[in-house]
């Protein structure tokens, strides 16, 4: 018998997951179901959608209405679900590559529309499933199998990107900060419009090994020591902040939600009949 939380919200016959030993994805997935549990949502009224990648395996293990879709298109499918059934809580689980490279356009436009979808990006700074290619969030000068001498691209800041594109709730946590992830996801679920939670996850197999970050425990400790809250960051200089991860809630500005705005037009036209 697994723990009550796992028993209730996971397809236990599918466990253990496919993820590598020490992968942060399992910790984040547990935080998400913990948030759903604390928010008191009905399992049948939650729909979890994912694309392709390590992160996108998560809904397969979660006992809700789930959909495993095509690469980068999780948000496109989720938009369809939300418009057809606005009463559902639609959650998208996606990865850094899935959300910001292959599905980059879907991502910014879902933010812009402020459609009621809670998106959780599992950011492990690399394409894990396909063999460790560098992704849009691989930090500059760090290595991937396709960047053996270091990546020269500048990395995306997913939270800044979502915030600028118009998401009404934005926050970041790490695999180490499991309780913060739960709190952020819970707040995100309570936001009517588009919410983004970036969960930084350690990939000991590729990102960790290629960049000599040590094992799973070392990566967890790195997050513990290098994650800084916005309040603490205000007291640090730019140099002191270099290489650190900013965590916490960055934006919580509710704005009119897309499906309810859409419904208003339907109601208005129906009156004219």
């Amino acid at each position: 018998m697994p723990s009550n939380l796992v028993e209730k919200y996971f397809r236990t016959e599918k466990l253990p997951q496919i993820w590598c030993p020490g992968c942060g994805h399992g910790v984040i997935t547990r935080s998400i179901v913990d948030a759903i549990d604390q928010a008191g949502l009905d399992k049948d009224k939650v729909c979890i959608v994912s694309g392709i990648g390590c992160s996108s395996r998560a809904p397969g293990y979660m006992d809700f209405n789930t959909l495993h879709t095509t690469h980068g298109r999780a948000l496109a499918f989720a938009t369809g679900i939300k418009l057809a059934k606005p009463e559902l809580k639609v959650i998208v689980i996606t990865g850094d590559g899935d959300a910001t490279a292959i599905g980059g356009n879907h991502f910014i436009h879902a933010c812009r529309r402020n459609i009621g979808i809670t998106t959780i990006v599992y950011n492990n700074n690399i394409y894990g499933m396909t063999g460790g290619q560098y992704s849009p969030t691989t930090p500059k000068h760090e290595k991937g199998t396709t960047a053996p001498f270091g990546n020269i691209d500048k990395a995306f800041d997913i939270c800044d990107l979502a915030s600028a594109a118009g998401a009404s709730y934005v926050g970041r946590s790490t695999a180490y900060h499991a309780n913060l992830t739960t709190t952020l996801v819970k707040n995100a679920l309570n936001n009517e419009g588009f919410s983004l939670v970036e969960a930084v996850s350690g990939c000991p197999t590729y990102y960790g090994r290629k960049n000599k970050k040590g094992n799973a425990v070392d990566m967890m400790n790195w997050y513990k020591d290098n994650a800084v809250t916005a309040a603490a960051a205000a007291k640090l200089s730019e140099e002191q902040m270099a290489g650190k991860i900013l965590i916490g809630e960055f934006k919580n500005k509710p704005e009119p939600e897309y499906t309810s705005e859409y419904q208003k037009i339907i109601d208005k036209l129906a009156k004219g009949r």
Partner: peptide, 10 residues
């Protein structure tokens, strides 16, 4: 339990 990625301990 909080940080076990595989829910193997609780």
């Amino acid at each position: 339990e909080l940080r076990c990625p595989d829910y193997a301990i609780y």
